[in-house]
Amino acid sequence: MARPLVALGASDPSAVLRGLEAALAGGPALLPVAEDAPALPTAPPSHVEQRVALVVETSGSTGTGKRVALSSDAVLAGAAAADATLGGPGAWLLALPTHYIAGLNVLTRSITAGTTPVVLPVGHFDPAAFADAVDRLDVGPAAPRRYTSLVPVQLARVLDDPRAIAAAATLDAVLVGGQATPVPLRERARAAGVRVVTTYGASETSGGCVYDGVPLGPVRAAVDDGELLLAGPVLAEGYLGDDERTARTFTERDGLRWYRTGDAGQVEDGRVRVLGRLDDVVISGGEKVPLGAVERIVRGIAGQESAVVTRRASAEWGEVPVVVTERSLDLDTVRAVVGDALGRAARPADVVVVDRLPMLASGKPDRRAVRTIADPAS
């Protein structure tokens, strides 16, 4: 049995909220679409399997396009587990695009809590507008808490503005995800009295399902040959029109269905540590250098919380790490810091300073564009 799939422009969060509410209640499945997003090679189908309620279309920052199919059960399981971990339902401030799973999760949690989200304008993140929006968050007896969800660059801008800091400090939690949150940024937030909860997940897991390194209640984490795997009721059904990718990404193990994240990771004493993308490795002078590990070290340097480490072809070494940043950074300093932590081969070969890093609408760095900046011939 099939149900209709309705594509809806994500520029109107109120319309997406209504469409999502209908989809979760058994109505037509919803596909939120960004108006400026590049079209995937195939048009979306007009109908999907009955159990699919939400389709998230994403190209990611480095990969190829995909349509992730999620059931109502998966989306609602993620919302319930998050509420249980955070301390209960509440009112939400929406600061993220609604064609990405993080923004859709804000809407889902508002629906289940019976609250109306306060919506920030899409586009450039304005700390003053953020502070105003926090003031408008209404709570009630059934949902007495207040939350928002940001990406690290948004949090950094909040922490640069005294009024925004004061507003953020009144929230019960500020979820931060979409990419690794640098330790100095988390420390700044804690020092300012902002309760930051770091999240990890993907569209394939109905969004963030690991909070502060701990899997949410029904979620399980494991490692297989260095790759982080996640299991639980939050998992997607698969990818629309791509059975091969579905079979490759979702696997059966130990009687459970698991999602292969593509991330290198560790699970120790129930805590998850993400080490970076498995495919994000350069061979420099014959040695493997994980760019994610280099980037974490660079982002630990004061003022470099949003720096990106990418690759550049080298006639001498094969490939080398390169730092692309909005703030000046002494090359000798960063080479020394990275070399001490990861060895000589990991030392960046160059620092490229730009006026503004290219970003995706999700708030993540556009890594393909960053690589072109570092290596125009790539």
Rank of each mutant, 00 (worst) to 15 (best):
R327K: 15
R327S: 13
R327P: 15
S328Y: 07
S328W: 09
S328A: 13
S328Q: 12
D330L: 14
D330S: 14
D330I: 10
L331Y: 08
L331P: 15
L331M: 11
D332R: 14
T333D: 09
T333Q: 14
V334C: 11
V334D: 07
R335A: 02
R335S: 04
A336K: 11
A336N: 08
A336R: 13
V337W: 03
V337G: 06
V338F: 08
G339P: 04
G339L: 02
D340V: 07
D340R: 13
A341M: 07
A341N: 08
L342E: 03
L342T: 04
L342G: 05
L342K: 05
L342R: 06
L342I: 05
L342D: 01
G343E: 09
R344P: 15
R344H: 12
R344G: 11
A345I: 06
A345Y: 04
A345K: 05
A346Y: 03
R347I: 02
P348V: 03
P348R: 01
P348T: 04
D350Y: 09
V351H: 02
V351Q: 03
V351S: 04
V352K: 08
V352L: 13
V352P: 05
V352Q: 05
V353W: 06
V353F: 04
V353K: 12
V353C: 07
V353P: 07
V354C: 08
D355H: 11
D355G: 15
D355R: 12
L357W: 02
L357Y: 03
M359E: 09
M359P: 15
L360S: 00
L360T: 00
L360M: 03
A361R: 14
S362M: 11
S362D: 08
S362C: 13
G363I: 05
G363V: 04
K364R: 14
K364F: 04
P365C: 00
P365M: 01
D366H: 09
D366R: 07
R367K: 14
R368W: 02
R368Q: 10
R368S: 07
R368K: 14
R368A: 08
R368L: 11
A369I: 02
A369E: 13
A369H: 02
V370Y: 02
V370P: 02
R371Y: 04
T372V: 12
T372N: 09
I373H: 08
I373W: 06
I373D: 06
I373M: 09
A374M: 00
A374Y: 01
P376R: 00
P376I: 00
P376A: 01
P376Q: 00
A377Q: 08
A377E: 08
A377K: 11
S378R: 13
